[in-house]
Design a binder for these strands. Sequence first.
DNA 1: ATGTCTGTTTCCTA
DNA 2: GTAGGAAACAGACA
Length: 266
Amino acid sequence: MPELPDVEGFRRVAKQAAHRQVREVRVHDAQVLRGVGSEAFQRTLRRRYLAEPRRHGKWLLIGTAGAANAPASPPVVLLHFGMTGNLQWCPHDAELHDHDRVVFDFAAGELRYRDMRKLTGIHLAREQDEVDDLLAGLGPDAQQIEAAEFGERLTRTRRRLKPALMDQSVIAGLGNICVDEILWRARIHPNRSTADLTDDDLDRLYREMRAMLREAVRVGRVPDGPSWLTGHRDEPDRRCPRCSTALRRTRIGGRSTLWCPTCQPD
DNA sequence: ATGTCTGTTTCCTA
DNA sequence: GTAGGAAACAGACA
């Protein structure tokens, strides 16, 4: 699930905890902690205040601030949600979910990192350099990138369009669902070569990406209403919301891909 | 029961 | 360089 719009939704969840003091951190499954042990993670965060959460691509970054003798560069929590992760703001008496892996406890409530499959997890950066290292491989955020750079980065390498759009080092934030939606709206076949894209193709791609993200971010996920391709993904008789052609489902770049053979000619 | 599928990422080989 | 497969993981489904 979690692509840019979902993580943007999690960012709003995390805002509930901003400027609050961590009373304690409960680690129910240390496996999701990456590159840091339970003890160190808990010790580092206990009694610190969380900052306003930020997002880059599919990463959620939560800075911290200490009350006194704050280090010049305070620790930052970096969360990735893999395929099934999410963030919940719960009252203390809400029953613990089977997949609640880490719980941040505040006087006002709890922030819970919930994830069924533990494909990715939570990192702790002790200083800004470590944040930079973790995000070093990412391209510009899909919501921030400007048209010129979008075109330049996308066409920098010659490859199939869909895997290029999903490549986090090219642009950060788009996943399988977002990309299918963008390509369908821009009327471009997912298998087209980046090298063959016209300026007009690139212009449409950029504008449809922006429009799709704006709407999806508003609701905190890619909408699945009838006018969205996503809404028809799992229907038995999938038809294009625009032209009613039977949708095709194939595999591109190892990922399940939904597209309309009429709107998106090869 | 066994195999296949799934919104991610990374690592390996061709 | 890019493409393809496998792995990490857990569950649903045929």
